[in-house]
Amino acid sequence: MAGLGQHITAMVRSHASGDDASFYSVALQVAAREAKAGHHVLANEIKKAVDASRRESVGKITTLAQPRGELAELVEVTHPNVQLRELVAPAELVAQITQVLAEQRQRRNLLEHGFAPAHKLLLEGPPGTGKTMTAAVIATELAVPMFTVRLDSLLSKFMGETASKLRLVFDSVAQRRAVYLFDEFDALGADRSGNDVGEARRILNSFLAFLEEAGTESLVLAATNHRSILDKALFRRFDAVLTYTLPDARQAMAVLRARLGTLGSGTSMAKLGDYTIGLSHAELVKAAETAAKTVLMRGETKVQRGDLIAALTSRRTASLG
C-alpha cells in the first residue's frame, strides 16, 4: 500500500500543478502495478482512460495552469512558440543548442547507460543577443513551459529569505518538467566584496547546492550580461557555457529580413553592415520595426533602403549615446 500511496500523492501533486504529462505517467505506473498484481481488467481500464483523455486534449487550446501559492510570487510562466530556425546565431552556438535538445530527447536512453543529459546551462553575453530567446526555443522544441526567475527582483524583494525562496523554485524544478531561466544571474553570482559578502556567499552557496541536486527532467538556465564579474567557481557547476556575441553583418541582415517579412522583399541591403555595427539582435529588430511602421504610415507596402538606413542610424545614435 505504501507504493500505491506514493503514486496517489504524485498524481495529486501533478494535477494541482497542471502537469498532465506527469499525471498520465504516474497513472500508467499504477496500471503497470495492477497488471503485475494480476488485476488485468483494472489495469486495462486505467490505460483506456489515459488514452481517451489524451485524445480529447489533442487540438484543444487551453491556458496551462499558472504557478500557485508562494511560487507564483517568484516566477513568471510562459508557453513560448519560437522554433530553433528562428534563432539567428553563429553556427557553433546553434550546434551547442542542437546538442542539448538531442540529449534531452534521448535522456531516457542516456540515463539507462549511466549518462546524464545536459540540463544545466550558463548563457553569457551582451544584452539583446538571444539568451532569453534561446530559453524560449528550448522550451518550444521540448514542448514544455518556461519559468523565468528574475534574480535581482528576488534578492531585493525577499531580502533575508532568498535561500528559502530559491528552495521553493528548485522544488518545482524537481516536480514539474520545464525550462527554468534564472535571469540576471550576475545579481546572485557576482564575485562580491564588502559588507554584503557574507550574505551573498550564503545565497550563492544555497543556489549551488540546489543546482547540484537538480535532476535531469527539467533544464536550469542561468543568463548573465556580465561574465567578467561572475565568481569563477560557478562555471564548472554547469554542463555547458553558451557564449553570445553581437551579430556580424550577415547575421544582422538575416535579423532585419526576418522581422520585415514581406515588407522587406526585394529591398537592397548590400553594404548596410557599417550601419549595424554595435547593434544587438534586439536593437536590429527595433530598427526593422521602426522602418516598417514608417512605410506603412506612408501608405506604402515596401521598405526602402533609405528607410532602413535612417532607422539603423537612429538606433546606433541611441545605443552609443
Rank of each mutant, 00 (worst) to 15 (best):
E73Q: 14
H40M: 10
T98N: 09
P90H: 11
F235K: 05
P126K: 06
R176Q: 15
G278S: 03
S172M: 09
D51Q: 15
Y180S: 05
G69K: 01
R107M: 07
V75A: 03
M1Y: 09
T276D: 07
D171Y: 06
A187Q: 04
D183S: 03
N81H: 11
G261D: 01
L4P: 01
A249G: 00
D248P: 08
N205K: 01
E45I: 11
V241F: 09
L155Y: 10
E86H: 11
H226N: 12
S314H: 12
A10W: 05
V88W: 06
T224H: 05
L242C: 12
K232R: 15
L208Q: 04
G215Y: 03
G69R: 00
L308R: 03
H39A: 13
R202A: 02
G194Q: 00
Y244W: 03
H119I: 04
G278K: 06
G215K: 00
A37F: 07
S14D: 11
A209T: 07
V58C: 12
Q251P: 13
A52R: 13
S164D: 07
V41Y: 07
L181F: 08
E73I: 01
F207H: 00
M11A: 15
E92N: 07
V26S: 04
T98E: 14
E73L: 11
D191W: 10
R202T: 04
T294E: 11
M11H: 07
I97A: 00
E212D: 15
R305H: 09
D152C: 05
V179I: 12
I229T: 14
K47R: 15
A21F: 02
A223F: 01
G59Y: 06
E76M: 10
P127T: 05
A52H: 12
F210H: 15
A310L: 09
L93Q: 10
E76H: 10
V137M: 07
L28Y: 07
R13H: 14
A318T: 09
G198S: 12
V173E: 06
E300V: 02
S164M: 01
L84C: 08
L142S: 00
K48N: 13
A292C: 03
V197F: 03
T276W: 08
R150N: 12
